[in-house]
Design a binder for these strands. Structure first.
Lengths: 209, 209
DNA sequence: GCCTGTGAAGCTATTCACAGCT
DNA sequence: AGCTGTGAATAGCTTCACAGGC
C-alpha cells in the first residue's frame, strides 16, 4: 500500500514524463523531474523507490520505463468507467476535461434531473435521468463517481451511488459526505482553496516587510 | 503563522459552524465538530488553540465567537476582489459558486479572449478582454486570481497576473506554474484526484478480502 | 462525569548524507 | 564528477493522556 501523498505525486510525475517523452527525451534525472514537479530530488528518488522502479546512476531514469512503472501502480487492471452526477457548468467542465484522456479512466455515464439534458449526449457522454442511476451503474459495473451537484443534493447522490456499488468518490460539493467504511472520498473544496490562497498571499507579503 | 493544514480545516469548521448556528445552536463541543468535519476531537481542540480561541469545559465553544475567531484569521482586513481568468464551463462554475458567498471574497472581474463573452455580464460578473488584464487588476487592486484556462494558456495567464500585482493563485490547469518567490499557488488537480480515488477504491476492496 | 487546554509521546513524511556505481 | 538507492536523522503533524474546571 502506497501513501496518498506518493500516489498524488506519481500521478504528477507521469504527466510530466509524458511531456518529456513528447519532446523526444528518453532519459531523465531525479533533479529534472523534481524541478518540474516542484519538489526535491530526494523526494522523487524516494517515490520512485516506493513503486519499485530503479534507474541508473549514469543515465537517471528511462522515461518510458518509469511511465510504465507508474502506470502499473495507478492504472486499473482493465478499463474502468466513471460516473458523473450533475451536468451543470462544473459537470460539463469535467466532461470536456476527461474527453480523450487516459483510456483507462473515462466518464462513461452522466446523470442529471434536468429533462433538457436527459437522454442527450453531452461532450460525447450520454446523460441519463437520475432515477436510472442504480441500474446504469450496476449494468456497467461502475466503481468510481464524480459528484458535481449542489451541496444539498450531494449526500443523497453519494448514498445512491454507494448502494449501487461505487466505492470511490470525487466530491466537489462543499459538504462532508457520510459513507460506509471501505468507500474512499476525495474532497475538492474550492472555497477552502480560495480562503487558503487569500490567507497565505497576505502572510507572504507581510513576511517580506 | 498558521500551517496550511490548520488553515484548511478551520475553513471547514467555519462552514460547519454556520450550519450549526442556522439550526439555532449556540454552543458546540469539540467532539461534535470533529464528527461533522471528519477528524478527531483532539485535532479540533488543537486547531482552536492555534488560532487563540478558547471555550469552556462546561459549554464547549460558543458558536458565534468561534466563527468570529476563525474569521479574524481567515478573512482579509477589508474586502478583497478576486479575478477569474477563463470563462469556459469551469470558469462559469466558479462564478455561480461564489455568487452570494462571503462578501469578503468575491470574484469581481473575469477575463476571456472569446469576443462572444467579452464585455458581457455573466453570473453578475463583468467579463473583460484578456488584453485589459493588467490594467483592470491594477485599478481594482486585485491580489488573488483563479486560473481556469486550458493548460497551454495557464503559464502565460499566471505571468501576466503576477506582473500586475497578484500574489495568490488557485490553479485548475494541469500544469505546474512557475511563479516568483512570494506568490502562493494552490493547485487543484482533478486528474490527480481521480487517479487517487481509483487507486484507493481498488486497494480498499482488496484489503477486505 | 464530561468537558477543555496542553505538554509529551507517537507517527508519518521529508530530507540528509553518503556508499556504490559508471 | 555526478548520479542513484537508502539507512539514518529531522521536521512536522496528530493523538494521547491527564490536570483543572464546572
Amino acid at each position: 500500500m502506497v501513501s496518498d501523498k506518493t500516489i498524488g505525486r506519481i500521478s504528477v510525475y507521469r504527466r510530466l514524463l509524458k511531456e518529456v517523452a513528447a519532446k523526444g527525451e528518453t532519459n531523465v534525472f531525479s533533479h529534472q523531474l523534481a524541478t518540474m514537479a516542484g519538489c526535491t530530488p530526494a523526494q522523487v528518488r524516494r517515490d520512485v523507490m516506493t513503486i519499485g522502479y530503479s534507474g541508473s546512476p549514469a543515465r537517471g531514469y528511462d522515461v518510458a520505463e518509469l511511465i510504465d512503472s507508474i502506470s502499473a501502480v495507478l492504472d486499473p487492471p482493465e478499463h474502468e468507467g466513471i460516473a458523473l452526477v450533475g451536468v451543470g457548468n462544473l459537470g460539463r467542465a469535467m466532461l470536456s476535461y476527461f474527453v480523450g484522456r487516459s483510456p483507462r479512466l473515462a466518464i462513461v455515464a452522466a446523470f442529471d434531473e434536468d429533462p433538457e439534458k436527459v437522454n442527450r449526449v453531452i461532450h460525447g457522454c450520454r446523460c441519463y435521468p437520475v432515477n436510472d442511476m442504480e441500474q446504469v451503474i450496476r449494468e456497467r459495473g461502475i466503481r468510481e463517481a464524480i459528484i458535481a451537484v449542489p451541496a444539498a443534493a450531494a449526500q443523497d447522490a453519494a448514498r445512491r451511488l454507494v448502494s449501487a456499488g461505487v466505492n470511490g468518490l470525487v466530491n466537489f460539493a462543499p459538504v462532508r459526505l457520510w459513507v460506509p467504511d471501505g468507500v474512499y472520498v476525495e474532497n475538492v473544496d474550492v472555497t477552502m482553496a480560495l480562503e487558503r490562497v487569500a490567507y497565505f498571499a497576505r502572510e507572504r507579503v507581510q513576511e517580506r516587510v
